[in-house]
Amino acid sequence: MDKNEKILRLLEENAHYTHKNIADAMGMSEAEVTAIIEDYEKKGVILGYKALINWDKTSREYVSAIIEIKVQPIKGEGFTQVARQICAFPEVVSCYLMSGGFDLAVTLEGKSMKEVAMFVFEKLSVIEGVTGTATHFVLNKYKDKELIFEEQEKDDRQMMGL
């Protein structure tokens, strides 16, 4: 891995690390790290800084679903135009072009299964070029963004190890 990309890895691990923290870990100056991060932000390599939230532990009622979408590609455009239309919906959390038996994998969030189903039915399946959809509801999240969604582990290390 490129040295500067190690900075990205650290930020991806914990966006709360300060530029000074990262500089200390990398053996660089704080100013160097700031310049590199600003450059990544400008170039759109770093797109933003968000909190990872386990909504299952809140009172928010929601469901997630993964939708497999088959698309008839448009000449000269491929899948891009359809994907762009799909991405414009705020309900869409992610949208990937896939190899294999279908074309786009879309993650959706909604208040209820009915709402998600209606969205697929009324908004996605009617987009020109979409030839089929298959909706899979998420039952439980075990791991997301490299984090395992279980009870926070307790530090069971002993002080005996002087």
């Binding site: 530090d155 290390r157 002993q158 002080m159 005996m160 190890g161 002087l162």
Partner: peptide, 23 residues
């Protein structure tokens, strides 16, 4: 170990933040 007593005390305190571990 001379500090066993101290460790026992730390163990008995609810919500204690440890900076004592050597691993």
């Amino acid at each position: 170990s001379g500090i066993r007593r101290f460790f026992d005390l730390a163990d008995s305190i609810e919500g204690c933040i440890s900076l004592g571990v050597g691993e």
